[in-house]
């Protein structure tokens, strides 16, 4: 876990997160991430071989309810915040060339 991230790694992660960086930003983020990851490396001081991971603080269980339709947003309300809409649908730029 002592590896540090390169600028190339940062650009790859940015693609996964759908973010775009120019050269100066990529340098800065590479530097910031390396600083933070360097600090995070502290966790390797601990032996956690036999420790169970915690994904949730308190014990919770899968919550179910009867499969019955309940009141929901109207089409008009659901679409109200769309930057662009048409005929009650979200409008986006063309997907296929």
């Amino acid at each position: 876990m002592s590896q540090t991230v390169s600028k190339k790694d940062v650009l790859h992660i940015a693609t996964l997160a759908r973010l775009k960086f120019d050269d100066e930003q990529a340098e800065r983020f590479t530097n910031d991430l390396n600083n933070i990851l360097g600090y995070i490396d502290k966790l390797n001081e601990l032996n956690t071989d036999n420790i169970e991971p915690t994904s949730h603080a308190l014990d919770i269980y899968t919550v179910t309810r009867p499969d019955k339709a309940e009141a929901s947003l109207s089409n008009e309300d659901a679409i109200r915040n769309a930057p662009q809409s048409e005929n009650g649908m979200f409008r986006v730029p063309k997907v296929i060339e």
Binding site: M1, V5, D9, V10, I13, A14, L16, A17, L19, F29, L33, I36, L37, I40, L43, N44, L46, T48, I51, E52, P53, T54, S55
Partner: peptide, 26 residues
């Protein structure tokens, strides 16, 4: 977002994310 995407990405998930969840237990 970048840090979170990195610690969840292929190859680093166990080293960072699972490790952190184990330390959370401690």
């Amino acid at each position: 977002i970048m840090l979170g995407t990195y610690v969840l990405s292929a190859g680093y998930y166990d080293a960072y994310y699972i490790k952190a969840q184990k330390v959370r237990t401690l």
